[in-house]
Design a protein around this nucleic acid. Structure first.
Lengths: 112, 112
DNA sequence: TCCATATTTCACGAATACAGGAAATATAAA
DNA sequence: TTTATATTTCCTGTATTCGTGAAATATGGA
């Protein structure tokens, strides 16, 4: 990943509303949620949410598709993976003993 | 980690200068680099760099110590781990098949 | 066609982030 | 004590981001 793209992803997530939207969509992956459902669950005005979704979408963190009158947004988990890999890149430049705790923590996460 | 802290870390990194500083310090971990060395390597004016280091430091991503006339900054790799874990948290809510590719990618990274 | 629902786009004032010149502070050496 | 080096703090004009009211667009149903 290029630095510009990493910065765009990071700044997209560096906002309380957008971070909560992204995390909600990550939980709802891979199905996704309609914009209106997100707005109701997080209590965000529709136009405000739309602006936030546009920013997340432009950063490549979410995708969308139309279903009837609704537009379904879903998290792009591979984009999240790319960002994590970018942050970890060069994390030990020849000194594995520094990086290993990071990998251990990730693998032991309650996630899976 | 709390959402506020994650947002502060994310916004600290969502800036070209600060991201390059952080990545330089991650490569130089755990020894760190003097502020002047960072300024010279990245061609950033000293006062501008100082403001950037203050922001990274306040977010908990870097630490600093004085050595003679220099102040040595170093990356806090555990803070980076915490941020990564926060981003991965709840990433599969009961569906490991979605999260596993993330873990696989992280483990196969050229990092270590 | 007419209407209700779902979502986006436009416009703009308020708040925040930004870079860097100039001055101040801290340390060490002469 | 004086000087040089290293870094930070203060300040300010500029640029960017932010939320949201109002209007526009898109779809499906009556």
């Amino acid at each position: 990943m290029e630095s510009e793209h990493a910065i765009e992803k990071l700044s997209s997530l560096a906002h309380a509303g957008r971070l909560s939207v992204f995390r909600l969509l990550v939980k709802a992956a891979p199905d996704g949620l309609a914009a209106g459902d997100i707005a109701r669950q997080l209590n965000i005005p529709p136009n405000t949410l739309s602006a936030q979704l546009t920013i997340l979408s432009h950063a490549g963190l979410v995708q969308h598709r139309r279903e009837g009158r609704s537009i379904i947004y879903s998290a792009d988990t591979s984009a999240m993976t790319d960002l994590i890999l970018y942050l970890m890149q060069d994390c030990c430049s020849g000194r594995p003993e520094i990086c290993e705790p990071v990998l251990d923590a990730v693998n032991k996460a309650s996630c899976c």
